[in-house]
Write a protein that binds this DNA or RNA. Sequence first.
DNA 1: TATTGTTATACTCTATAACTATA
DNA 2: TATAGTTATAGAGTATAACAATA
Lengths: 166, 166
Amino acid sequence: MNEARVSLTPTQLGAYFAFTEVSSLLRHAVEKQLRDAGDLSYVQFQLLARLGDVPNGQRRMTDLADGVVYSRSGLTYQAQLLQQRGLVTRSPSLDDERSTVVTLTAAGRAVLATVFPGHIHALHSLLFAALSDDDVDELARILGQAADHLRAIPPRSATPRRRKSS
Amino acid sequence: MNEARVSLTPTQLGAYFAFTEVSSLLRHAVEKQLRDAGDLSYVQFQLLARLGDVPNGQRRMTDLADGVVYSRSGLTYQAQLLQQRGLVTRSPSLDDERSTVVTLTAAGRAVLATVFPGHIHALHSLLFAALSDDDVDELARILGQAADHLRAIPPRSATPRRRKSS
DNA sequence: TATTGTTATACTCTATAACTATA
DNA sequence: TATAGTTATAGAGTATAACAATA
């Protein structure tokens, strides 16, 4: 807890700058691909992908909002858009009538299937083409650690209680 | 040029997911810090930091737009906001009267100085706390490669010529 | 009372296209 | 004609707060 830590080592700085640069460029490229191939925003793709990831294609709104870092109203907005396009349906949960269950439709799966190959290809050509297999291993390991760490820290996008003192 | 590449190895997938997760969580945290500490958006911080990075604190609009991945009109908008707050000034270039030179003001430097410590601290506690020195070395090396690769590919945010065939 | 989700609203950001001015 | 930048505009996305319904 040394609070004199007000600087970064050159290597840390380098890692940070490289990270932000890769993040930004990759994000832009991927967003363009998703938009072109399936008329999906990145968030919408994430939501569909998350639904496609589970066998029955169903998740509760809150679980979706937790996965994507997102406000609940923002999720409602995006879910509406996806529903209007027929890519998901929404229905009240049987277990808990407060909850809304979002379900991936066949059309939603179709869009995912349309978009995936290009998505994968973009990742190959933009990111993995530059990295050896060992590099990918290392990257997965290191960023996995970082992700675990980050995930453990922050209060999620849940209902904010009363703020402390601020 | 093997076009049968429509899948990723599990490790690649893992690296990708970890990357997006770290990117998203880190970005949110950093944005909140910048907003709280200096009422700056991430883009605004990037612009100020870029100006602070060069001795005279001056850059041309186009150079700024190139650095941040950005449309020129978007940059004009942000530059206006920064100018209204007195953090930068804009004046025509002497060399080339078409160009606008953006200059970091003393107030701009002050805001940077206010924001930096918290920014550094956030990076420490959110990212580097989870990584060994060796990990950071590796991360810098690998992402550096990736950044070089990405930087070499895409046409920047310049005036889009006529597209080729695509 | 706490939780889930929606609605209303206001605001920020971003891009496109048209435009001006200089090289 | 090409480049640098601004303006007008329109649209997407996001968050906050108020609200309704269920646990």
